[in-house]
Every structure is written in structure tokens, then in C-alpha cells.
Nucleic acid binder design. Structure first.
Lengths: 253, 253
DNA sequence: CCCGCGGCCTAACCTATGTTGGCAGGGTCT
DNA sequence: AGACCCTGCCAACATAGGTTAGGCCGCGGG
């Protein structure tokens, strides 16, 4: 709600409203001056649309632009030669899933749309020019990639050391907070773009087992999950099951 | 060998030789000018020593300095409330395991010595001052944290989607390359500071199972592993077993 | 010198999770 | 409408890997 107020406070009528997600996201992790915000809004970008399942960036690519999720939902994933898939991150509007390509030439994983998704592409050149003028933005971007890494670490401990129930509860907790962060979870309910199969690939489980555990969580009245929408009924208890502690999201600020 | 030549080419007699590891490491991922190298060597640092098992930085800390491994070997890890442990990274001399603390206030994991280890502490202030003067170094540090994240991702797919044999073979492959990178693996043999228990916690397995798999690898003549030293006997075959592809280390340059 | 501890190794047993296969409902394309 | 296909759901069975327990060895400390 507060964030919503923010949206209305600063209006940039000459740009499509989706650009605000980027400003909004970066403000959620650091402070920005008015000039910095304006400079972000002025970044040149070309927009493309993707259907569910389509790749936005592909492993092996050598990007010369970064992509910014404007609308929809994306995942980062990697495939083993025999087709096993590991999803390594989910991304909401305002995220730049391949920001790292600024400093790492070749993509070591892919980015795909998990639902109809609009992505904007910003030339590396423009970003470099921007961060050259605004050191504050440079640090914001760096910080963003560092938080990314923190989430990877948290997922690692999940996949490596939590059992299936803990993992799934934990992921649902994380999603709720991140959707809340972009005002997409009113009343602890949100549209989840991931199928049970996607969840499985994110958590290192099989789709069948994800289904089993989900049934348990529903039976115990912690959540409902129908038709791609999830409601958290017992937030406290869900956190306990997932051993959830939000500090790793570094959203405080 | 080439790197060894490099060592001798540039000598900074007024500093302890361990400082060269940092220069060496950063040069393995990016180009540095002579001034930048000198500036690195001139960083103020205070040195402390740690025994195996001691924490160098602890989860929850709010560091005002970054640590640099001068000598020895360190791991980054995280504990669950009931004591389950996940190791998320190994670090060799020249690495700065908590570089992220520059932009992320509170540590979300710990760093520990895995053998007697010497670490240097560099005030954030000095690093900020340095990166202010040398944008090249700023990008080198940023790039370093991005490679870190790339390794996290690779470990994620390992823990999530590879079976125990693949995981263990893969980790040994990675270690060989990283030790080679710092001239610590002559003839494909290196001192491994990790116990089988450490390996288990890094790979999301139990120590017993690590032992089982290690026996297999030895029986098949791929490696020897005695007394904390590992030799790779069949490098090709080990890579095949681990589905190993080194691009994620981004060491090429 | 002995003691205790930590690291390895082994065996017997157990269970969480994977696999396969099959069914039902809802979209979507023709 | 019919034919698909994807997603969720469910049951029966299979197995990789966990757990527990114990023995052995080498080392550092008293």
C-alpha cells in the first residue's frame, strides 16, 4: 500500500507505466535521488513479448543488452545434457535477470518466460554510460546482483539440507514476500505462474512428490492452491514448517 | 607454470608475499594496469590466524572490513536451527569470501577456516577509496562477486539434479581447476583440506554416502585419496562422470 | 606412555523420494 | 464436436541415499 502511494507520487507520463517497476524495485533495496530515478526512466529500451515457455536469453548467448522484466514472470534455469532441469531463480517485474552479463561475457544459464511476459532490452552501453554518471546507480545494480547471490545461497541450503515439506513451505513463504513487495499479493493471495512441475525443478524434487506435499499442506489448512492461485491461510505456521527467516532477502532498508 | 613466471616478474619486496595472491587472483579474471596492481599491494590490512574449524566471519555480523584469505583454505556455510549444515563455497588464497559485505550490511552466512589459515582484514573504507580511484578495480571486484554467484548456480544444479556420483566427481573436477589456478596442483595432485564430512555438507549428502562413492571412484582407478591428498588419475573419465564443463568458472579471459 | 578424539571405513537396516502409469478436467485448435 | 495436450491427482512399486552403530588408526595432549 505504501508503495502504491509512491507510485502515484512520482508520475512520468511520457513513459509506459511498466518502467516504474524498475525504479520501484531498486528503491526497495537502496535509496535513489530524484535525478537517478529520472535517469532510469529515460533509459532507452526496446520491448518484446514472450509466451509461456519461451526463452528470453539462452545459455551460450553473448548478450550486448540486459533484459528487464516489465510484466509477467520469468525463471532462470540450466539443463543437464539428458534434460534434467534446475530452476535457479524466479523473477518478477522490475527484475533484471541477466544484469550479470554486464561483466560476464557468456551466459551460463537461460532465462525463460513462465507466463505471457513483456521484457525490455537495454543496451549495455546505455547502462555503462548511466552508471558512469551516477555512482549511486552503479552501487544499486551491484547490490542487486549481490542479493541475487544471497537468494542462491538460501536456495542451496534448501535443496541440500531441507526435506521436501520444509523446502516447499519455504518457497511459498519467499514467494509471498516477493509478491507483496511488488503489490501483487493482496490478502496473502497471489497468482502463481509456476506449475507443480516448475516447483519441482526449482526445489530438486519430482513433480509427483511436490503434489504429495502440497496435498498435505492443504489438508492441514495452511494454504489453498487452485487454478494457479495460492492463498496463505496460516502464515505463522507456514513459516515454522519452512524454517523461514526472511533476512536473506535483504529487503529491509 | 606461466603464472609462476608472472610471480617472479613483478616483485614487491616491501610486502609479505601472500599479498600477491590477491593480485594473481584478480588477474585471472580480468586485466589490471600496473598502477592498479600496485594500489592493491598498498592496501592497509591487519592479519589474523585461525585454526581449523574457527569462524572468520559469523552469520549476523555487520562487518566494517572485508577479509582476504592469505594462506590456507576457507568455507562459507549456513546452519539450520537443528544443526544441519550446508557449505556453499570453498575459498583459496587470494579470495575475498565476504566481499559482498561492502554492499550488504548483515552477513547471512558464516566463513570458517578449514585448515590453519591466515586472513587479512581490509577496511571497507580503504576498498571504497580504492575503487573510487580505480574504476577498473571496482569492476574487477564486481566481476568477482558475479563469478561467485555463477559458482553458486552451478552447485545448485549439482545438488538439485545430479546424483551422488556425478556430484562428487564434479566437485573434484572443480577443485582441481581452482587449485591449478593458484599453482597448488602439480601433476594433478593437491592437498585437500576438506574432510569427507565437509564434502558431504557441501554436496547435500551424508558422510557415509560420500565415503561409499569415493570408494567406487578409487576402485575404478579414477582418483586416489589418502591422507588429505588427492590425485586425479583419469582426468577425462572423471569429467565424464561428473558431467563437468568448466565454462561456469569463467576463468578463460 | 596412555588416553581420547577425530577422521575414515564398513555393514545392516530404513525411509524419503523417485518412477511409472493411469485417470480426469479444462483449454485450445481444427 | 472431436482430438489434443497440459496440468493436477493418485496408487503401486523401486531405489538412492540416510541412519545408526561399531571398529580401526594416527595424532596431540597430559
Amino acid at each position: 500500500m505504501q508503495q502504491h502511494a509512491t507510485h502515484h507520487a512520482t508520475s512520468y507520463t511520457e513513459h509506459p507505466p511498466e518502467r516504474l517497476h524498475l525504479v520501484h524495485k531498486l528503491r526497495s533495496i537502496t535509496d535513489l535521488t530524484a535525478e537517478e530515478r529520472q535517469a532510469l526512466m529515460d533509459l532507452p529500451m526496446t520491448v518484446r513479448s514472450y509466451a509461456r515457455g519461451q526463452d528470453i536469453v539462452r545459455e551460450g548467448d553473448i548478450p550486448s543488452e540486459c533484459c528487464l522484466i516489465l510484466d509477467g514472470f520469468a525463471s532462470r534455469y540450466k539443463l543437464l545434457p539428458d534434460g534434467r532441469r534446475q530452476i535457479m531463480a524466479f523473477h518478477t517485474p522490475g527484475d533484471m535477470p541477466d544484469l550479470q552479463s554486464l561483466h560476464i561475457r557468456v551466459m551460463d544459464h537461460s532465462v525463460a518466460a513462465m507466463m505471457p511476459t513483456k521484457a525490455a532490452f537495454i543496451p549495455h552501453k546505455s547502462i555503462r554510460e548511466l552508471t558512469g554518471r551516477f555512482p549511486g546507480l552503479l552501487h544499486a545494480f551491484w547490490r542487486d546482483t549481490l542479493i541475487d547471490a544471497a537468494i542462491f545461497r538460501e536456495w542451496m541450503i534448501g535443496i541440500g539440507r531441507r526435506d521436501a515439506h520444509e523446502r516447499i513451505a519455504h518457497l511459498i513463504c519467499e514467494m509471498l514476500l516477493r509478491f507483496r513487495g511488488v503489490d501483487l499479493a493482496p490478502e496473502d493471495t497471489f497468482k502463481i505462474p509456476a506449475t507443480q512441475n516448475d516447483m519441482a525443478d526449482a526445489l530438486g524434487l519430482s513433480n509427483v512428490h511436490v503434489n504429495r506435499v502440497l496435498m498435505d499442506l492443504r489438508r492441514d489448512g495452511l494454504i489453498t492452491w487452485t487454478n494457479h492461485t495460492v492463498s496463505i491461510l496460516k502464515w505463522e505456521e507456514l513459516q515454522v514448517r519452512g524454517l523461514f527467516d526472511a533476512t536473506y532477502l535483504h529487503q529491509v532498508h
